[in-house]
Design a protein around this nucleic acid. Structure first.
Lengths: 163, 163
DNA sequence: GAGCATTGCGCAATTA
DNA sequence: ATAATTGCGCAATGCT
């Protein structure tokens, strides 16, 4: 079912920034086409006040030039970053898959272990029963060694022990 | 050294419009500021040509209006999509975390199971040893009823079971 | 401070 | 037509 009408709660107001995207770098690869068109917009570069006279010696907090889009260095950085991003995302995805796989492996392992436990438990149970039986037998005809014999009917009580 | 421009010209098939968003929405949490002052002029809403008369009745394959960026409906769709995207990503991330957690749980479970196996094995081993001992004892003074002569060592087969 | 790595976000194409 | 996914670029931020 879909949400027919949602009273627009939380107008996800992100920053109200005008975004001007313009890209035109070489298509890395495998883009069907339809790369969203971008084009340069006449962005006005703020006239750099440059170092007029008063040079505030601010050790930090210096306004960053909006990164001139035309700058050669800018494009270079962008491209590098795009690459890094791609790489990072690939890694991320790979990791996710690996984790999923790990889950499957662990699940299998778990089943195996549980099966083994079941088996061992069974074996133990059997042995214990045998022991009990012997114990009963011994208790019934508790006859010191040497000439031990005679009748020993001893109705065997098949007591099933629990676990 | 300078980067020769890519021979790849920006041949944007269709839709070569830059996006200029000017949102006057309330700034939200997040980005402190640093919003470049990019104000865009309010675009005039195009007078709807309305239904003049010639309406091509295309049953299918109708060209999609390049999505007029100014369109009210466009903005609406974008916003909806942005929301959906956000939701989707959140879910994706959540899922990843869940999976990771699952791995941890399974690992713990595994350890528990292995410990249990170890314990059971030990128990089994003890019991088996006891059995063997008994068997030896019996073998030593085994007195088959009714005339038993000679010693019958009965080679005990210490068969260790496999798993 | 340079530089890659992460992460949140919006856009657009696909898919369901 | 709508919502959900997915690939991608941008920019801020984290980390070396």
């Amino acid at each position: 079912m879909s949400r027919p009408s949602q009273p627009k709660l939380t107008a996800t107001d992100h920053n109200g920034v005008s975004v001007i995207q313009s890209q035109a770098h070489a298509a890395s690869s495998s883009l069907p086409a339809a790369v969203a068109g971008l084009q340069q917009v006449p962005q006005l570069v703020p006239a750099n006040p440059s170092t007029g006279g008063g040079k505030a010696l601010a050790p930090s907090k210096m306004k960053k030039p909006p990164a001139d889009k035309d700058s050669e260095e800018y494009r270079q950085r962008r491209e590098r970053n795009n690459l890094a991003v791609k790489k990072s995302r690939m890694r991320s995805k790979q990791k996710a898959m690996d984790t999923q796989q790990r889950v499957n492996e662990l699940k299998e392992e778990n089943e195996r272990l549980e099966a083994k436990i079941k088996l061992l438990s069974k074996e133990l149970s059997v042995l214990k029963d045998l022991f009990l039986e012997h114990a009963h037998n011994l208790a019934d005809n508790v006859q010191p060694p040497a000439g031990a014999e005679g009748s020993s009917p001893a109705p065997n009580s098949t007591s099933t022990n629990g676990q």
